[in-house]
Write a protein that binds this DNA or RNA. Sequence first.
DNA 1: CACGGCTCTCGACAAAAGTCAAATTGAGCG
DNA 2: CGCTCAATTTGACTTTTGTCGAGAGCCGTG
Lengths: 321, 321
Amino acid sequence: MAIRPAEQLIHKAAWLYYAHGLRQDQVASQLNISRASVAMYLRKARETGIVNISTSTQLFTDDVMARRLEDALSLDAVWIAPENDYVIDPSTDIAVLAASVFLELVRKGDRIGVAWGRTIYTIADIMSYADLQDVTVVQLCGNLGAPYSYRPDQCTMEIARRLNAKGLNFYAPLVLTTEALAHGLRAEPVIREQLSGISDCDLALYSVGTVDADSHVVKCGALSVGEMALLREAGAAGVIAGQIIDASGKALDCSYNRRVISAALSSLRQIEKRLMVVQEDSKFEPLLAALAGGLCTHLVVGARMAKRLLEHAGAATEKAS
Amino acid sequence: MAIRPAEQLIHKAAWLYYAHGLRQDQVASQLNISRASVAMYLRKARETGIVNISTSTQLFTDDVMARRLEDALSLDAVWIAPENDYVIDPSTDIAVLAASVFLELVRKGDRIGVAWGRTIYTIADIMSYADLQDVTVVQLCGNLGAPYSYRPDQCTMEIARRLNAKGLNFYAPLVLTTEALAHGLRAEPVIREQLSGISDCDLALYSVGTVDADSHVVKCGALSVGEMALLREAGAAGVIAGQIIDASGKALDCSYNRRVISAALSSLRQIEKRLMVVQEDSKFEPLLAALAGGLCTHLVVGARMAKRLLEHAGAATEKAS
DNA sequence: CACGGCTCTCGACAAAAGTCAAATTGAGCG
DNA sequence: CGCTCAATTTGACTTTTGTCGAGAGCCGTG
């Protein structure tokens, strides 16, 4: 890169502007460049994460409902995106919040596991840039064979790029045709290493998928609509990192799961901070399953979903007493 | 406070503006207030740390000199503020850098020990606001009896205020007239508790003082010019948190030190991250003493001082070999 | 050495943000 | 009930910032 001299200038401009609080024209005369260039450098500084602008997500945890949900579900932290109030775009609203929360949870030196899906990709897409050295972003599950819009490796790489972090992809298909082949592939050193490294993560980011025809695993061709219907009858309740879970949050005992190359649920549970983000209201049952399976310690949801969860939890304790 | 509804508005405005990237007039129409109010709320949001704008201090560690200093002095990290280059105000320059470094080192839940002095107060004064819950700022040494411009409790409180943290002052004089009284006071539960809690800190912020007539301990009347001169002859090389140290960084065996109420040097050494900031070139010898005593793991200095340190370290290794 | 293709830089204009004094609100009080 | 006082809000104005197309410098290539 010939951006070496510019790199230095970007730093200096950012420093004078943001740390010292000079105006752009003052910075310009300091560095003997035009003000327009300063403006451009500053944009680059923001885009590369040399400067970091973050807003506290306090507001969303302060919500009484969030507190009650934390208690009811015994989660570490819950963020609720308001949905009636001052909303811009209901779908990106949760993603924006999730991105902020995510950045708030990341620490230098962390190892981060990232799953895939529309939700995750949306988050990656709107996430602001940061300059986190020594962060590694690892892919939690195998790739889709067919080109599909929100591929696991894309999610991983995009988040790594935003964070200036190292991205660790692994190039295995998400699902294979035979159990034997999956077994063999999992034993491959490259794959095995990646899979066993997942429990060393400090933070995981994932969503949960539905088990109907709209599910991503169906849309990307990993499962046919018919197979999915059958699995559903067999007790499938949700999809986590490409794997089917039942209502209790355990991996469903089925051929499909045995043919999948992905992080074992037990490895996921070993990750200290498991951030789950749910956008769609239709993911209520899958979310319940994930919660039952202890696959989530930090939760970002919309207000409607929060309300339903709370009502459900209330009904459950009533029934119990 | 009747700022309850406003507090909410500040959060919302900050969220829409900084997280969603709306323009001020869009935020204004969203919240049904005037754009001018939005501008005001945003300023408040920045001032209260609801939004956080930080710039990477990378540039200052990337310096080759900083790397070499880290190695030569076996420190965890060194930041060097350039002094010939694009400098605004040589004295605040180091403080601005130190404040950024400090904010970069602080973590949620941390306990932070803060000493006193002009340097520390300058840092506190230009430090930007942050919203760190569960942070406690503790005072490392006793107060001055006489009202003096940069009092230990002022330094502690100002930093706590900027961080939205809890400030833990302790109201004992820095130095007493008799050793017996100092001994008795140190045994007081309130004082003892505070002093013993110092080793639990995760981060310490201090500078080092000179041992001449210009020293703060002299200027504030804790020691007379004559006494200081005598101590100097006895081997005094610097002042740390109100205590006199010798060239090897150990507390000097003298009546003054026994009459001081302050953090034991051994407690300070137990703190994981010890950030030392030195502004004045005249503090070369005191800094050497502090370094010898292992009282510093992270260092912020100006370029001239860095050069001198490096030359000194080079000469020392040469002599050794 | 002239030629695109490239990035970086700048001036000028348009857009956005900051500021201030005046107006409004609202709480406390005689 | 009407008053004051302080805090908040606003519209109008100024300053600051963002953007765009043009031009300048800099390779590698034909």
